[in-house]
Amino acid sequence: MSTHQPIGIHLLADMSGIEPDVLADCARIEQLLRDAAAAAGAQVLHSHFHGFGPGLGVTGVVLLAESHISIHTWPENGFAAADIFMCGAAQPQLALELIEEALQPEYSEVRTVDREPPH
């Protein structure tokens, strides 16, 4: 008897109580998500990030062979929302652990969705 495995794992993380300066640094956030992809064993294809200005938030996405990691930050609220979706042998939890270690949120709520084709 074989164990059923989902096609992909999708993690949705809402993190709060984060230092605002960290959340406003576009280059730092982009490098963090690229490093998170590597930690998860995923292959980065491309990334695109946008900073909204000094002291303002960042939005960005890292496109992966295994899907994507995206983030949007609100420094004025000390809040970041991350979306980590990976398939194959990639391990999205390892990406999330690296992101949380770097951002040091006081609180993190994570929802996990097993992605499967409809039956």
Rank of each mutant, 00 (worst) to 15 (best):
S16W: 01
S16R: 07
G17E: 13
G17L: 05
G17S: 09
G17D: 12
I18N: 02
I18A: 07
E19F: 01
E19K: 05
E19M: 08
D21W: 14
D21H: 12
D21L: 13
A24W: 01
A24K: 00
D25I: 06
A27I: 12
R28S: 14
I29K: 06
I29W: 04
E30G: 08
Q31H: 12
Q31E: 11
Q31I: 12
L32P: 10
L33S: 08
L33Q: 01
L33G: 09
L33E: 10
R34N: 11
R34T: 11
D35A: 13
D35T: 12
A37G: 14
A38L: 15
A38D: 14
G41P: 13
G41F: 05
G41H: 06
A42Q: 10
Q43H: 13
V44K: 08
L45D: 13
S47K: 06
F49G: 08
F49L: 10
H50Q: 13
F52Q: 08
G53K: 03
G53F: 06
G53C: 05
P54V: 14
P54N: 12
P54D: 15
G55L: 08
L56R: 15
L56K: 14
L56P: 07
G57N: 06
V58D: 11
V58Q: 11
V58I: 15
V58L: 13
T59H: 03
V62G: 09
A65I: 05
A65T: 15
A65Q: 08
A65W: 04
A65K: 11
E66D: 11
E66V: 09
E66H: 03
S67P: 06
H68R: 00
H68E: 09
H68G: 09
I69M: 01
S70R: 05
S70T: 12
S70P: 03
S70I: 02
I71F: 06
I71W: 06
H72L: 11
H72V: 14
H72Y: 06
T73V: 02
T73H: 02
P75K: 01
E76T: 05
E76S: 07
E76N: 03
N77P: 10
N77G: 14
N77L: 11
G78H: 01
G78C: 00
G78F: 01
G78M: 00
G78P: 02
G78L: 00
F79C: 14
F79M: 09
F79K: 11
A80N: 03
A81K: 00
A81P: 03
A82S: 12
A82P: 08
I84K: 00
I84Y: 00
F85M: 15
M86T: 06
C87S: 09
G88L: 01
A89P: 04
A89R: 04
A89H: 08
A90Y: 00
Q91D: 15
P92K: 01
P92A: 08
Q93T: 08
L94T: 15
L94D: 15
E97H: 02
L98E: 11
I99S: 11
E100F: 04
E101R: 10
A102N: 13
L103P: 09
L103R: 04
Q104H: 04
Q104W: 00
P105Y: 02
